[in-house]
Design a protein around this nucleic acid. Structure first.
Lengths: 211, 211
DNA sequence: AGAGTAATGTACCGATTAGTCAACTATGAT
DNA sequence: ATCATAGTTGACTAATCGGTACATTACTCT
């Protein structure tokens, strides 16, 4: 589904996001990005003052254009909490499957991969942005959990605690999926694990055969 | 407590492990390692044919010298399973605290950080070694869980499943600790989470004040 | 003591890195 | 039409990368 003529800037953002996701920030050079996007280096630095700025732009725009609308849909107020969580788990798995098909490997969470890599002085700015993005994601989770608590839909008391538990759990599954290049953990444990953390009924789940 | 005259080779291994742990493989150059270890480049390549070989040696030796004896102690056959798990959780937290004091930040799991970064063609060998190392760690976990199952100490049936769940869970906590530079998740959720996964009694835990 | 080898030190290599620069072209408003 | 501006291009830099070559030093065995 390639949109026709995405514009140079957008091509750079998308290409960089892809390349970094399937390998790492450090191992993808500006030349790599330019080559893959079919853009000359001069144009790169016309749009972005540095490689780090492109990465940050990629994060912000991916969040604003993909993640934010997605969260608003999944956690829409009219959907019951248990269903929100089910949908959330399903869509994570689906995204990972799609990426696996597209790139030939399990990719995990791009923010976590980047955040882990960019530890240390040189990566401060990017690392801070990763934390900020994670924070924004957690805000959506927190809103959903808070209203579930208010509605007595779950027993939990501290929404922040549950958000952290949930996020840490999900990140673990995605990270190990990335490292071991397998969806096993996500397929088997994601949904029931999330339900268990939140004190929701854990349904016996039927796994779709992987294609 | 620096041992006197560690030997050039060992200094390289230890220094590289440290530097890579607190930043990343890609952002640490051979020159960085040599400078920090006070070793000349010629000596580096006398002991290791490449940077990647040093990283692999560091993983293997860290496992053989630190991790393996540690696992044998924690999962010693005469220790009750519930206690094994408690000790395991405690020691993970302690290791993270120690590293935090030493390096001024939460470092998380070095294998996971490296494994996530080394995805992609260029990192195949290192990535495979990370998987191998994780596999060896899981073997110890599996042995402990299997005998707990055999002794009816826990309800679980499939040891492999529990090992995966446990490993994914722990990795998630450590990874988010690294990314967000906080021990909150590990301090609050590690032990009860492990106990819950394994169907063990979840004790109310008293948290040590962080120093 | 002397020979062989292990270890060290220094100077170097070509390739690659992020980033610069000035010339060029397309565009759009007046 | 013209003029400023946005966008593009390819050649360029200085620094750094992983790795090599080779001479020198230290150690060990006889």
């Amino acid at each position: 589904m390639p949109r026709p003529d995405k514009g140079t800037r957008q091509k750079l953002v998308d290409t960089a996001a892809d390349l970094i996701w399937i390998s790492s920030y450090g191992s993808v050079s500006v030349d790599d990005i330019c080559r893959a996007a079919n853009v000359k280096k001069g144009s790169f630095y016309h749009y972005f003052p540095s490689k780090a700025d492109l990465a940050i732009a990629a994060m912000e725009e991916h969040f604003a254009e993909d993640l934010e609308p997605y969260f608003q849909q999944v956690f829409a107020a009219n959907v019951p909490f248990a269903q929100q969580i089910e949908n959330f788990a399903d869509s994570i798995l689906e995204e990972q499957r799609t990426a696996q098909e597209k790139y030939g490997r399990v990719c995990g969470c791009p923010l976590a991969a980047l955040g882990s890599e960019m530890i240390g002085e040189e990566g401060q700015i990017i690392s801070a942005k990763v934390q900020e993005m994670f924070g924004k994601c957690q805000d959506y989770l927190k809103a959903a959990i808070s209203s579930a608590i208010a509605a007595n839909a779950i027993e939990a008391k501290d929404a922040d605690e549950k958000v952290r538990e949930l996020h840490d759990f999900i990140t673990g599954l995605m990270m190990m999926g990335r490292i071991n290049n397998t969806l096993d953990g996500l397929e088997h444990d994601l949904k029931p694990g999330m339900q268990r953390i939140l004190g929701l009924a854990v349904k016996q789940q039927i796994l779709k055969k992987s294609l």
